[in-house]
Design a protein around this nucleic acid. Structure first.
Length: 194
DNA sequence: CGCTTTTGACCTGCGC
DNA sequence: GCGCAGGTCAAAAGCG
């Protein structure tokens, strides 16, 4: 994993705040109208998430205190979502090509359900067992034509109630469902967490 | 029938 | 160079 660590945004105990974070970060850059404070790398709480030199080379998510419930986002890098593996076949990145970093955001939420309806349509394309985690990590891709946004969903083994969703890239299209769905998400979260 | 999920194989990068 | 771990592909199965 030579990926840069995603920024993990603080998911809060307040569902409303979670909602706002989701709606903010799931929108493509050009849909983002407002800014909020992103935790920087000097934040001691997030160092564990941002540093890669841990015993586990996971993004460090397992090292996060579940109660801290963080949200990380790396918005630097290139937004060229089609460059990773443009054509079919097993070619991922051509040898010699410059590695292009995509923006990555990770959300840590406390929920019984792994898949949060964020308004986009996703197709699962893989699942892998993760070291030091008894739960597998699932890989999803946005099904919108031409949109190469990916996300990973993983449950923490240290706290089964915590789900980490990592978004990679930015959507090239508007959200497909009403953002009212966030209300539903939050309702679900509240139901399950009670 | 078309779309999604499952799952094993394959590829790549990194550390030793 | 080798082994490990993460990420992706693609065929088959499942489902509405």
């Amino acid at each position: 994993m030579d990926n840069f660590a995603p920024h993990v945004y603080p998911s809060t105990t307040s569902p409303t705040a979670v909602s706002s974070h989701l709606s903010l970060n799931l929108m493509p850059d050009n849909y983002t109208n407002h800014h909020h404070h992103q935790l920087d790398e000097h934040d001691p709480i997030n160092l564990g998430l941002l540093e890669k030199n841990n015993s586990s080379d996971e993004v460090g998510l397992d090292h996060v205190s579940p109660t801290s419930s963080d949200q990380l986002c790396n918005s630097e890098g290139n937004n060229d979502l089609n460059s990773a593996s443009g054509s079919t076949g097993k070619i991922h990145i051509k040898k010699g090509d410059k590695k292009i970093k995509k923006p990555k955001c990770a959300f840590q939420t406390r929920s019984q359900v792994d898949i949060l309806d964020d308004g986009y349509r996703w197709r699962k394309y893989g699942q892998k067992a993760v070291k030091n985690n008894k739960f597998p990590r699932s890989y999803y891709r946005c099904t919108y034509q031409g949109c190469n946004v990916k996300k990973q969903v993983q449950r923490l083994s240290k706290d089964e109630g915590v789900v980490v969703t990592t978004y990679e890239g930015t959507h090239t299209h508007p959200i497909e469902k009403s953002t009212d769905n966030f209300e539903h998400i939050l309702t679900q979260m509240q139901i399950y967490s009670s």
